[in-house]
């Protein structure tokens, strides 16, 4: 009787622990997905900025002046070719959350 009761109790506890583990894993996966979406947003924005810069450099007016004056106009890069990690605050996980964006509140930031 005692053995059966103990076994049932262990089974229930085991099932609960597995459930919690699955829930945590699920939460981790959702965090990863959120992070990837966030990274995608950053990359899209960066792509947009680079495209804008390339179009600005290749502006018809600018090229026309360069070609007609027979001068090549080279500009130094605005950022290092081999960039070192910048001493800026680490980008928070969920940068888009509003209105507070204070990196000191990581992980997870409290909304007002």
């Amino acid at each position: 009787m005692f053995f059966r009761f103990g076994s049932a109790l262990c089974l229930v506890v085991a099932i609960a622990l597995v459930g919690i583990a699955i829930e945590k894993h699920n939460l981790d996966l959702r965090r990863d997905i959120s992070r990837q979406h966030f990274q995608m947003d950053i990359l899209k924005e960066e792509h947009n900025r680079l495209r804008l810069r390339s179009q600005r450099l290749a502006a018809v007016d600018r090229l026309f002046e360069t070609v007609t004056s027979n001068e090549s106009e080279l500009q130094p890069p605005t950022r290092p070719v081999n960039p070192q990690p910048e001493a800026v605050p680490r980008v928070p996980l969920l940068f888009w959350q509003q209105p507070v964006k204070d990196p000191r509140h990581e992980p997870g930031m409290t909304l007002p």
Binding site: R30, H37, L94, G108
Partner: peptide
């Protein structure tokens, strides 16, 4: 955005 009991963001549903 999904918040936990402490009001922290734990996930973003897309």
């Amino acid at each position: 955005l999904v918040r936990d009991a402490m009001g922290r963001i734990v996930a973003v549903s897309y």
